[in-house]
Computed example of a mutant assay.
Amino acid sequence: MIGPVWLHLALIAFIAAAFGSGPALARPTLPFGVRIPAGRVGEPAIALARRRYNRGVTAGAVAACAVVLSGWTARIDLVIVGLGVLYAVLGSLAHRTVAAAKRDGDWYAGTRQAVATDTSLRSDPVRPQWILLTPSVLLATVTAVIGLANDTASFSTVFAQVLVVVLVSLLTFAISRARPEIDAARPSRSASRYREYLHGVLSLLLVSAGCVNATLLVVSLQLWEVIETTVPVTIVAYLPLLAASIAWLGFSLKSGDAGHRLSPADGEPETRYEQRDDDRHWYAAGMVYLNRDDPALLVHRRVGTYWTLNLGHPVSWLVLAAVAVVGVLAGFGFVALPSKGG
């Protein structure tokens, strides 16, 4: 992965900013993936974990930039991987720090724990705006027509576009019916926030499918030599992906993790309950969920704007097996991937 030094520095800055903003966007009662009572969000141990994490993120970014500026750019991919591993370790250490303070201080002692749900999300669910999927379908159709007109064209990119449409449709349907994130301390307010948050996620997901297929259209034209492969054309090809990334970033900054930064319409007073402590079902610093007693297939991760599979659900293993099979087939060449010259 060889390219301009400024591009490598920009990539390092982006990764550092993404990891560094994580704690700020996380729900206050889930610092570094640890569930805590609302009254404990100002604990010194949490502030200490954040300071150590932020210093580590900054130090890692500075070290990576120093390596790039020293002239070692031939294996920038190793620098990026190393930086990602470092940040993952820092997050795990911060998670352990907060979890230890919670355990030693018995933060949930004397609290009344509960779980809240919003039945209106079943009777009146957030319905995906399927019309937003139209551009991705049209772009795939246009690409297929151009490919048919070009006798030497390979349809690997067209298959990729169709796969994008199918996968995004399935993911949108699954997320719209995933278990909602409702806080027992303020159930009405959190339900209102989650509904607004879910609407934004589903809309962005469908729009992003169109952005991906727009990029694949230009890539197809380059592979089929319908248009010349030049730097300006390549830049134009990836502009839709850049636009989608900026949109997701802006939405994440506005909404926060699971929409906790959104402003609900009501001023609901806080209840006497705390959200149930379910740390025992979460692993890898809040990244992996396993609960055989939970019927939910998809649950919102404790870190980031996305969902994860409940590994305690049998269907989740079927999904993982299907992904593994596709990966193996692609590795052995049975599934064609887009490449220069088809």
Rank of each mutant, 00 (worst) to 15 (best):
D77S: 12
A285L: 02
V231T: 15
T97P: 04
G256D: 07
V115D: 05
A24M: 13
E225F: 01
Y273G: 03
T157E: 04
T305R: 06
A321Q: 01
G312P: 01
I15A: 10
A330V: 03
L204M: 11
V323W: 04
Q275H: 11
V81P: 01
Y273V: 09
T234F: 03
T141D: 01
S192Y: 05
L202A: 03
F332N: 07
R272C: 08
R186L: 14
A265G: 06
A184K: 00
G333V: 03
I146L: 15
L298S: 06
G333K: 07
A66L: 15
Y289W: 04
F173H: 15
T271G: 01
P28L: 00
L298F: 13
H281M: 03
T73W: 02
A285Q: 02
W107M: 11
L198T: 04
V115S: 14
H313W: 05
V207A: 13
V142I: 13
V81Q: 03
K102D: 08
W282R: 06
L139V: 15
R52W: 03
A47N: 01
A64C: 10
D183S: 12
V299A: 07
S316E: 10
A99P: 04
I12H: 04
L167N: 05
I246M: 11
I146F: 08
A284V: 13
S208E: 14
F32R: 08
A285N: 10
L163A: 15
T215A: 15
H8K: 12
G256A: 11
V165F: 00
R122P: 03
P4T: 04
N150H: 15
A237S: 14
C65N: 08
S192A: 12
G110H: 12
L204D: 05
E43G: 07
V212P: 13
D277T: 08
V137S: 00
A296Q: 08
F251D: 05
N213V: 12
V288G: 06
H260K: 03
T271R: 06
V288E: 10
A258F: 04
A140D: 04
S123C: 05
G56N: 10
A88Q: 09
R272Y: 01
R276F: 00
K102Y: 14
R292L: 02
L30P: 01
N291M: 03
V67L: 14
L163R: 05
W282H: 08
V142F: 13
V57I: 15
V233E: 11
